[in-house]
Design a protein around this nucleic acid. Structure first.
Length: 206
DNA sequence: CTCACGATTAGA
DNA sequence: CTAATCGTGAGA
């Protein structure tokens, strides 16, 4: 499979955050490393809108060292450490100067599953345990080996990128409230979480 | 400089 | 249900 030929170009990422978050569903996230390639189909995302969205790290419109990349034009990786131990992967969206990102919450493993299993430190993948490989934002970063050194990487590059799937399928997309943002007041209720209906790699099924 | 805390996860 | 664990950024 030639993922590079199907790589999403810059214009895909320049649209508004909500639209990019939705259209990322079904796409293939690819990470090429010396030890091997891992590929996962994106099955769950959340939109973080920047200005006006109290849940977004750039909500106050102020640039800080951590969130500076969110103000870049779309198509860059935003990776940050949460709870001192897990990485979270976002795709920067929109035009330059407008902060916002699509948070990737769930992947369905496509290629490099053995490498993913090793990186996750799992021995037993029998039964429903196999979903633990990539059914959460921290888990998929472990499986794909995405960490802070990847922050700022251009997804239009050759190492970490997103591709059109081999065949277009019609997706049954569900919207819901975002997860674990109790601190965000009424924004907690905004329907900015999107996932593929009934996909077992969605982090927290409805 | 200090210090409270989180877009999570694994395990009891 | 809770502990783990540390970079970040607001405030002194």
């Amino acid at each position: 499979m030639c993922y590079k030929e199907r790589k999403l170009q810059r214009d895909f990422y320049l649209k508004d955050t909500e639209e990019v978050s939705k259209s990322l569903l079904g796409k293939y996230l690819v990470h090429d490393k010396p030890e091997g390639r891992t590929v996962g189909k994106i099955v769950e995302t959340e939109a973080y809108l920047g200005n006006g969205d109290p849940a977004c790290h750039a909500s106050n419109g102020e640039r800080t060292e951590r969130t500076d990349i969110l103000f870049e034009k779309g198509g860059y990786a935003y990776v940050y450490l949460i709870y001192g131990m897990y990485n979270c992967f976002n795709v920067v969206t929109g035009e330059e100067g407008k902060p916002g990102s699509a948070f990737i919450r769930g992947l369905e493993p496509i290629e490099g599953k053995e490498l993913m299993r090793e990186r996750r430190g799992l021995d037993d993948l029998s039964g429903k345990k196999r979903f633990q490989l990539t059914n959460g934002p921290g888990k998929l970063c472990m499986a794909m080996d995405i960490k802070k050194r990847d922050k700022g990487k251009d997804l239009c590059g050759d190492e970490l990128y997103i591709s059109e799937p081999p065949e277009e399928k019609t997706l049954d997309i569900v919207s819901a409230e975002r997860i674990n943002i109790d601190y965000a007041g009424e924004a907690k209720e905004w329907p900015l979480r999107f996932f593929i209906k009934d996909n077992p790699y969605v982090s927290k099924p409805p």
